[in-house]
């Protein structure tokens, strides 16, 4: 098999973009896990809500990308706040099983409610950038991909700064590292948990908004993403944020390479094959030590 260098580069760039958007989901999942010790199975649906919010906001905003994205982020943050206050806040720290049922149930309810209201017809989302892009030689990347990747990078930078330099963010790392010590210094666990859920929801909103002009928007688009994101969190090491980012970008690359050179069906299986291999070979994930930890 001969590999066309241009084709490979194209796949690689697309893979990085997709990987960065996966990373936004994985990081939020990791953050909620670190702070609340629960897996939010409705996390993919927050992305879907963000994508739908983008799809509906764009025509209202005259197809302007940035205002519509702001609306999408705000909408998912509000959804995150509602989910936290109504369903997650009453959970006690040792109710992991209940949290699985609640968030899994919520995920299914959101998917079907969205399908009932907006039908399952895939939506093509158009922005001010249309399908224009930058061309380097014979390689072409659409602006929506470039901007999506850029926005994700900026979000990671912002998240790092918040977790590293603000009491607001440090409290999230603190509670993930030692719950009792967090109480010792006067941290209110529920306030921090709420902040973490809203922050993670905002990252989902950003990812959903960024992905909507790249992929078709359907009520099901988040369904499998949660499992992928969960796999990434495991591969990157639970609670390890840079680990999750590296794993996510690697996955984006692997998926695109596999999708580009092999049967497309292998693309979806790849992440889980890798996850199982990692779990057997390195049970604590690939990046156990160091990095910005929330767990």
């Amino acid at each position: 098999m001969t590999v066309d260098a241009v084709y490979l580069l194209q796949l690689t760039l697309n893979g990085i973009t997709l990987g960065l958007l996966y990373a936004l989901i994985a990081v939020g999942l990791s953050l909620i896990f670190g702070v609340m010790e629960i897996i939010n199975f409705a996390h993919g649906e927050l992305l879907m809500l963000g994508a739908f919010a983008m799809a509906f906001a764009l025509p209202v905003m005259g197809l302007l990308y940035w205002p519509a994205m702001a609306v999408a982020i705000l909408a998912t943050m509000l959804a995150g706040l509602a989910i936290y206050e109504v369903l997650l806040a009453p959970l006690k720290p040792d109710e992991f099983e209940r949290s699985i049922l609640i968030t899994l149930g919520l995920s299914i309810i959101i998917i079907h409610a969205m399908q009932y209201i907006f039908t399952a017809t895939p939506r093509l989302v158009d922005t001010q950038y249309g399908f224009e892009g930058i061309e380097i030689g014979s390689i072409r990347i659409t602006w929506t991909r470039v901007i999506g990747a850029g926005a994700a990078l900026v979000a990671f930078g912002g998240l790092y700064a918040v977790l590293r330099y603000t009491q607001f963010g440090r409290a999230m790392r603190a509670i993930a590292q030692n719950r009792e010590a967090a109480l010792m210094v006067g941290i209110r666990p529920r306030v921090v948990a709420r902040n973490a859920v809203v922050l993670a929801a905002g990252l989902c909103g950003l990812a959903g908004a960024a992905i909507s002009p790249i992929q078709l928007v359907t009520p099901y688009m988040g369904q499998f993403l949660i499992f992928k994101a969960f796999a990434l969190v495991i591969i990157g090491g639970l609670g390890n944020i840079p680990g999750a980012i590296v794993a996510a970008v690697a996955l984006g690359l692997v998926e695109n390479w596999i999708g580009g050179f092999f049967e497309i069906v292998w693309q979806e299986a790849a992440v889980f094959v890798i996850m199982i291999a990692v779990v057997f070979l390195r049970p604590d994930g690939l990046f156990k030590r160091g990095g910005m930890r929330v767990g």
Binding site: Q167, R170, A174, N178, E180, A181, V185, I187, R293
Partner: peptide
């Protein structure tokens, strides 16, 4: 003030960051 039994700090934070967390309930 309460210092619980066993190692009760934030192990993956520096001493400086731990001290900053200790100030959590104080005005900035």
């Amino acid at each position: 003030g309460f210092v619980p039994q066993g190692r009760c700090n934030f192990p993956a934070m520096t001493v400086e960051e731990n001290m900053k967390m200790g100030c959590y309930t104080l005005p900035a």
